[in-house]
Amino acid sequence: MTDPSQSPATSSNGSKPLLELRELKTHFRVDEGLAKAVDGVSYSLREGETLGVVGESGCGKSVTALSVMGLVPMPPGLNAGGEILFRGENLLLRSEEQMRAIRGNEIAMIFQEPMTALNPVYTVGNQIMETVMLHQGMDAAAAREHAIGMLEKVGIPSPLSRVDEYPHQLSGGMRQRVMIAIAMSCNPSLLIADEPTTALDVTIQAQILDLIADLQKAEGMSVLLITHDLGVVAQTAHHVAVMYAGKVVEYATVGELFSNPRHPYSIGLFRSLPDLAGAGERLETIPGMVPSATHFPSGCRFRTRCSIATDLCASQVPSLDPMDGTAGHTVACHHLEEAEKL
């Protein structure tokens, strides 16, 4: 993994975006109306890099990832606009059949809960073999060899016997390793990891994050890491997109965002971390809670919880604009100067 302090330089050194979202909108028809879970999300991910997407429950970070995979059930979901450019081509225009050839092959995904993501009635070997037999046309014998090799690669001890075991025979950390083995089977150029370590204990989490970083280094893939844990992002990402209520409110390199957060929501998020406060001091909090996706406030969606909101924030949606002097740092706020004094 590259040192984060170098990442702005490496990223501007011409590596082109592998994935680019432009004003992506994924909405859901629900009983209460239209839930705008993802409502104009733009970010880009360069080759070989890790983009961390952070935000609280319901901010749309997972739905964004599912949209990239083409896994949002429609209906109730619907594409309300925007583009998902993967190697410059819009995935939203692909047919289901074309998407099936990309999914699991070019773009792979791992999920939070490996027990529900794995099929309990197939051995882990079968589940790895399925991917390569489908996408790479391997025969069963070669696929089995491949599966054993993948298990070894993701650090599962005695892969020769583990290959014939079922998911329930493995621990949580091992299951997540199997998920990674399945995802990595076809050498994807993009790995989407949706809260990959949230269900794991901290020592196992560290092992899994190391594993993803090692594989990324070896294979040169890009990682889209979705998490609510700012610690995980700080340790692994090159760039970070902060999401709130279906929109990206701030985007920057990890070093820039952590040292110089500018959006009032990002600032509040960092201040409510217990780790940074001295013991016994009161934690700063963001008042209120995340608004419902069917009834987002007008204008800036954070304004109902923001201490510096004005009438302008209610009437006009702030756009995600670049900040002066800091390359690649974009913020969606009308009151950047006031926010700096927070």
């Binding site: 020592t203 844990d229 610690g231 992002v233 700080a234």
Partner: peptide, 15 residues
């Protein structure tokens, strides 16, 4: 093993 929320302190930890 705690991931520190500070990118400047990326640890070379032994896990």
């Amino acid at each position: 093993a705690i991931p520190v929320p500070d990118p400047a302190r990326r640890s070379q930890r032994v896990h």
